[in-house]
Design a binder for these strands. Sequence first.
DNA 1: GTGGCAAAATTGTCGGACAGTCCGATTATC
DNA 2: GATAATCGGACTGTCCGACAATTTTGCCAC
Lengths: 239, 239
Amino acid sequence: MNDLFVPLDDHPAYRQIANLIEQRIVGRSLRAGDALPSETDLARQFGVNRSTIREAIRELEVHGLLGRGRGEKRLRVTRPEPRRVSSGVSRALALHDVTFLELWEAMMALEPAAAEYAAARRTAPQLHDLTRASARFKRAADDTDAAVAAVVDFFTAVAAASGNQVLALSQAPLNLLLAPALTRIVDRVPQARARIMEAQNKITAAIKLRKSEQARIWMEKHIRDFKRGHDLELLKSGQ
Amino acid sequence: MNDLFVPLDDHPAYRQIANLIEQRIVGRSLRAGDALPSETDLARQFGVNRSTIREAIRELEVHGLLGRGRGEKRLRVTRPEPRRVSSGVSRALALHDVTFLELWEAMMALEPAAAEYAAARRTAPQLHDLTRASARFKRAADDTDAAVAAVVDFFTAVAAASGNQVLALSQAPLNLLLAPALTRIVDRVPQARARIMEAQNKITAAIKLRKSEQARIWMEKHIRDFKRGHDLELLKSGQ
DNA sequence: GTGGCAAAATTGTCGGACAGTCCGATTATC
DNA sequence: GATAATCGGACTGTCCGACAATTTTGCCAC
């Protein structure tokens, strides 16, 4: 059944070079903060034209492995920032037409866990960020967009407080997907604001008092509410 | 104390163009499968040099928004494949020096949920993939790398069977991170193989019989075992 | 060492060029 | 008529050279 020969994919030079540089970075041979040689120099070292180097560099830049500070000319090795990579994931998910249910199930898996660990490990500044996001939601009574942004920030703050980068990075893309659905809910379901506010209060309190179980339970309720809100919104929208 | 003005970052032309094309794709103005105009044509349309177009294209290619079939010359719009995007995430996580504990906590949150949904929604072919991965693990008695690969495939199959793209895409990066740790465990902890085999059997059976709760519980045990194995391995390695 | 300034280096972009290869159409073959 | 060989055009990957704008560096005075 299987073919005897597989098509040989010739990697173009720019891809090979990107891989080589990437290996140096992942292998810690180039460390974050180090400045990369100039394009001309790289072209000389690899024995290719500068245009080819540039194409290779673009790849690494997109991956977040290379970057430059504002107004800086030289490229430096950087550690991929969560925002950058998570935005890529959420765009991918959006293009795959994920349903609200899929999103919700993933949140249901991740957020309570994050809340639980946050209660156990949060630092004082992290707690502060949490309360600040919660306060911002209360203040955004009339501005839907601001309210949604505050909810997203709340989740982000919980994930950050969990002290777990994997959880945080897994959760980040969900936020971006949540925003549009949440906007509709907040707009159309009157009781949503009050319920979100209560849940945020309870969760924040539990994390503040380091009550892991409480934090998890209230986060579960919080997320479950989203589904109820979404179902209500669906009803109202006539469908 | 925020500055009143933020430095305006002039996006270079290649970035602007990449964004413009990306908008067309995300906005479904260009749909997956559509062929992109040639580089020369794009250069003409945007009024820039072909080199600039090429740099823009590299970005979109990395994002997985553009690609070309094997041996195909023309670029086509593609939907970002989970493998591509998840490899970026796991590399990012690796560069951030995530600990095994962080990885394990995230798996503990995601995998049982995936197993639960898989039991509820798996199709016949998905079940077949699952059993096949499990069988492959049994067969790889002496080959550590093959065994680790089979474990990864098992998790991937469970996630796929969950019928939830968000869960699947959130879980995929974890697999790549798990591999090295799991290699050490399988190598150094003798009882690991047997325990993994038993867990896979139980999980597969539960998913086959559509017993959601059983699937979740056994997956939890399975993941917990990883932590025990890792702790044992740490002890043995003398640390 | 600090500040200022000129020189050198670097990036972003451009134009043009060419070989290798893929695609489509045309022509030749059975 | 269907299939196979052929051919020209189009396109990509890569190269060369060039130039303006800006950053970095080297140097000098204070």
